[in-house]
Amino acid sequence: MIRDITIGQYYPADSVIHKLDPRVKLAGTIVYIVSLFLFQSWIGYVIATIALFSVIKISKVPFKFMVKGLKSIIILLMITVIFNLFLTPGETLIQIWRLKITKEGLMTAVFMAFRLIYLILGSSVLTLTTTPNNLTDGLEKALRPLNKVKVPVHEISMVMSIALRFIPILLEETDKIMKAQMARGADFESGGLIKKAKSLIPLLVPLFISAFRRASDLAIAMEARGYRGGEGRTKMKPLIYKTRDKMAYIIMLLYLVCMIVITRMI
């Protein structure tokens, strides 16, 4: 049951995209998102589609997994489409009572829908091909200049990676405690709101206790191994750009230039 929830949703596969430096993927995602908002014409969509689908193909992640991420924005998508469809002024196509569907409205609605879908798909490529730890590592290194303005970049990324690391652990723990209490006849599903909330006590108390215990164990384990913050700390796997990362940057740049030139010319 709870085991089936995926958060961080990394999909392990052996592909070039998986091996890329997380900073490249971060930059790529940003470039892609920006590019989506650069153009107005259909040719831009064609290029964005080709780019997106070739990246997905290379990443070896089944398309089915990508689509999963779209479920969460379905409502947002519908609202956007409906508002654009009915509220854009212009040449009327169909009129039902006082609701007008205009040619311009139809165009914007379709384009906006594509934009949103591509936005989500593009960013799922990042989360599906990068482990959470790798991602925070990348963020830490990319944001390092902020250290100069006294932002504790290392500490923030450490907190982030620990939090991410603990999500599956706590999910498993929740599953275990739930089962243990169900074996004692606990019922988490039926009853009204108050009864349901009350039935959570046998779950939450042990869960919190275990979370605190784990946190304190982790703190001791970190100190025992000499952890004292980010200063002077080196990495076991330092992020260093390789040839493929440089290639990826060049491809990204080409894509962006292409986008700008073509959409401006046509």
Binding site: K176, I177, K179, A180, P202, P206
Partner: peptide, 12 residues
């Protein structure tokens, strides 16, 4: 009746 591993973690 099922007693899980480390059942003490279910006490509340």
């Amino acid at each position: 009746g099922l007693v899980f591993q480390y059942p003490e973690y279910q006490l509340f």
